[in-house]
Design a protein around this nucleic acid. Sequence first.
DNA 1: GTCTATATTCAGATAGAC
DNA 2: GTCTATCTGAATATAGAC
Lengths: 202, 202
Amino acid sequence: MQELGGTKQAIFEAAVNLFARDNYHHVSVRQIAKTVGIMASSIYNHYASKEAILLDIYDYFDTNMARLMPDLGTLMQMAETAHPHDVLRATTVVYPQAIVPTMAKAMLVTASMTSSDPRAEDLIHRNLIEMPYLYDIPLLNKMMDLDRIEPLDAESFALMHSCYCHSAAVRFYGSHGIDTDTWIRGMELLFGRVVVKQPAHA
Amino acid sequence: MQELGGTKQAIFEAAVNLFARDNYHHVSVRQIAKTVGIMASSIYNHYASKEAILLDIYDYFDTNMARLMPDLGTLMQMAETAHPHDVLRATTVVYPQAIVPTMAKAMLVTASMTSSDPRAEDLIHRNLIEMPYLYDIPLLNKMMDLDRIEPLDAESFALMHSCYCHSAAVRFYGSHGIDTDTWIRGMELLFGRVVVKQPAHA
DNA sequence: GTCTATATTCAGATAGAC
DNA sequence: GTCTATCTGAATATAGAC
């Protein structure tokens, strides 16, 4: 990962910005260097290759996701008492404000590589697709077991939830952005499928 | 578009297969030629450039989508009498069996270019994202006006619907396929948000 | 650590014989 | 229309002076 300040971080940030805007394949090492204000060859004092910069971006995305992902154990406890919709809301990863811009771009870069790099595909799959899936199913099952919600096809619900997060994440910062309010209302509409039996806790 | 048989179609099919599997940027004209069984230079007797092949694939996808897209007028009529869930089901484009394999690959190729080619992004946006949106909203509004369904946030529903179709389409033929049955059940689960007032027509 | 200069590789595309 | 041979250009990466 990148340290604080210095040329290496400048390279990282130039790269993440350029890759997010113009795609990895269309950005040359020379362009990155020009943005930083150095010669292309100097890049190689900090990164072994262009690909190494990309891997660093993947790593930034993956590390922060792992760090910020809610703990399933905590959520499972929440499932016993909290409002079922709140439990589902809590499965969403929330980035600290400070890293939002870089995370958004790192995610976009990783997502843009899914069709040409299996490593990126695995990262996106694991973090954006499989994750909501793996969280929702045990949570919903537990709440059904506790008779806190009406019976529901947890698997289909989880698929819908993960597709929604995935599509939105990929589109959020593309040319055709998604309106955040509409997105949240959509999510609430989906949560409406989870019908609470015992209304919100005390 | 491609005619029937002949070298040009062989090039088209080799390209669509290779691009779908390995990504446009990683497939060389030489590879396509080798697959067809000719020399790279012979490609240029049929296509002006590598990009021209790609544009032909875009066109194949777009033309067939336009051709198979249900007619909104017909759906609006359906909305007066048919079961509301059937109306929503009818918004989905169904490919004729004969073109399923090629369409699937053409769609995948187009989708894989969205992050590096604005033309592809527009095609995917128009056909996979905006389309369900543009269909659902007037249909739902009409059915609400006719008091056939309970009031509903049509915009959020449409966004959810379009995200689901988009994410699924892109993932269906990727490394991590989606189970078709689960997908359909997810769609039905979403349709369950549309609560029918007057039960299915006579 | 940065620079200049250059090596290397490879892909898209063209010329012209057959 | 297909071939062989070649051009052209671009991009990654390296060598070595400072």
